[in-house]
């Protein structure tokens, strides 16, 4: 987070700089030392405050990020000399069926997860935006899973979706005559149940974003629509929904990234099974890196994940992010 703010800060100062620079175009060829001095005189305090954050960013973000790319070309031994193996790890990745299955599982997971999370978050936000009694209470209830430890939530979820006839959901659907379902033990259901867990866990925070978005929509628009005789449904689809576009975009990016990084639920509830059907890319990466000690190969997987998230974010930006300016 610090880093993002830093970049913004940097940019804003940069754009201020541009004005005097244009004015003094004839003075541009000052010697390097003097230029440094002038910059220092002007913005010294900014740099002084930035230095600790940048050093931290450098040591804990940039260097590991760059070094893990180097790792992908090595057979990295934890102790002792590493061996340069060229593209071996990358070639292994392209021939690794399990890695591609893990990526596909992750894509499937996003499909099950992203839209329902957004929809549920929006619906919850609309409910607490109604300003009926006990709004604050419901806000708290809806937000509770977000602040509860994931391990606890996962434990409850696993208990609800127990695959025997004594599991609570199985008991309930048994009452209306549906057969006992295996849920987490069925390779066609397990991923959906895990997506349900994530939706349950995250919808509360999406709700808060949407709630903030709803608050910022000007009242006049609603008044005008009502005067024109628009129905509540029409008001929602014509005013509320489109004006929430920046929130949609933000929530979409955040949930997409989140969905590609999903790990805990598979680790806690299914161990990646049955038959790898809940092995997501991060779970596979973890297995390769920390259980199998193939840290170089794990680095390849992490770069694959990085490129996937990067490409998706760029696509989303191109098609959704441009019209930030809604008013």
């Amino acid at each position: 987070m610090i880093t993002l703010e830093n970049i913004k800060e940097n940019n804003s100062f940069a754009s201020k700089d541009q004005l005097p620079r244009k004015k003094n175009a004839n003075k541009r060829k000052l010697p390097f030392k003097q230029r440094i001095k002038r910059e220092w005189d002007r913005n010294a305090i900014v740099y002084i405050f930035l230095i600790p954050a940048l050093i931290h960013f450098l040591i804990f973000q940039i260097i590991p990020f760059a070094y893990s790319f180097v790792l992908t070309f090595l057979d990295w031994k934890i102790i002792g000399d590493s061996e340069f193996v060229g593209l071996k790890n990358w070639i292994q990745f392209f021939n690794d069926d399990l890695a591609w299955k893990a990526i596909w599982n992750t894509v499937l997971f996003s499909i099950y997860y992203i839209l329902p999370t957004m929809a549920l978050g929006l619906i919850l936000a609309l409910i607490i935006n109604l300003k009926v009694k006990f709004t604050g209470f419901f806000k708290g209830i809806f937000f509770l899973p977000v602040v509860t430890s994931f391990v606890v939530i996962a434990g409850i979820w696993g208990w609800l979706f127990g695959g025997t006839k004594s599991g609570l959901i199985n008991y309930l659907i048994g009452l209306i005559g549906i057969d006992t379902q295996l849920f987490l033990s069925d390779s066609s259901q397990a991923l959906i149940v895990l997506a349900g867990l994530s939706i349950f866990k995250v919808a509360g925070s999406t709700m808060i974003y949407y709630f903030a978005g709803l608050q910022s929509i000007p009242r006049e628009l609603y008044e005008a629509a009502r005067i024109d005789g628009a129905s509540p449904v029409k008001i929602f689809w014509r005013i509320t929904f489109p004006l929430l576009k920046p929130i949609h975009f933000y929530v979409l990016i955040v949930t997409t990234i989140g969905s590609f990084q999903i790990f805990d639920s598979a680790y806690l509830l299914t161990g990646g099974g049955p038959n790898h059907s809940t092995t997501t890319i991060v779970y596979y990466l973890y297995q390769q890196g920390f259980a199998g000690l193939n840290l170089s190969y794990a680095a390849v997987l992490s770069y694959a994940l990085f490129f996937i998230i990067l490409i998706i974010s760029l696509i989303q930006r191109k098609y959704l992010g441009k019209e930030d300016n809604i008013y």
Partner: peptide, 19 residues
């Protein structure tokens, strides 16, 4: 063995519950 044995992490509750 129980139906959820394919991915179950434990069956202590069933055992301790006398099932």
């Amino acid at each position: 063995i129980p139906e959820d044995s394919i991915t179950a992490m434990e069956h202590d509750a069933l055992f301790q519950g006398g099932e």
